[in-house]
Amino acid sequence: MANAMLIDESRCMGCRGCQVACKQWNDNPAELTENWGSYENPPELSGITWTKVKFTEKVEGDQVKWLFLTQGCMHCTEASCEAVCPTGAIQHHGQYVLVDQDWCIGCGYCVAACPFDAIHSVFETEAGGEQKATAKKCTFCVDRTSNGLLPACVKTCPSGALSWGDRSDMIATGKDRVAALQAGGYARANLYGEDQLGGLHRLYVLADEPSAYGLPEAPRHATSNVAGQWLSGILTAGIVAAVPFWLVFKRQRAEEAQGGGAER
């Protein structure tokens, strides 16, 4: 029985209580940020910000829609971070994708591999500089949830946008809500995360298309074509480089075979 988080973005009011609860429970310090013209703050997830609400303004006709997206690790079934991790520090434990903080070397590969930009190894220190450390991200509050408590963000959410429970229940609830939204005039409402990357454990009820929120419609697994990429590099070495080499130096071989004595 795998649990999952269901995030109903049609109920989110952008209060960012989840951000604060996450910081508090996980002992993550605040970030030094500058006003960049949006209530969205901090602007990016980082090694010390594991969840945040992304604000998107979508203009439709003469109306502006304000879309909220509670970002964080999706705990993918086919997790790119787990696949690329060179030390095996990132592993699945049931539905949780967790980084072993004692084994991670802080190479940053998972940061580049994540399709959702949800894991980070660099953060801004309070003094203002940047620091690189081990990779950190949302853990679904494993220390809470494995003891029967709700994740901190879910616990604190005042609008009922966040819920936590059995994944199939969450999917059923999500589908009901999508149907209700569609009946209520949100024709593009959809459930995100049911099938992507083998199934995400962070599911979204979206009032608009995933791309409107900045979510990839078809997220790609980082190593899905790694064999082809090896082949591309090796073939280039083999054909594109070795062939001209052969042509250039073969002539020399023939010349040396004839008049080699004179040369040496």
């Binding site: 790119s80 690329v84 590969y109 580049a112 591999a113 994540c114 399709p115 997220p219 790609r220 980082a222 190593t223 899905s224 074509n225 790694v226 082809g228 990429q229 090896w230 591309s232 590099g233 090796i234 073939l235 280039t236 070495a237 594109v240 480089a241």
Partner: peptide, 19 residues
Amino acid sequence: ATNQPLWGGVLLLPALFVA
């Protein structure tokens, strides 16, 4: 083998670095 748009899944990137 990542998900950054300039790199991810681009078959010609290994070829470029090899060249």
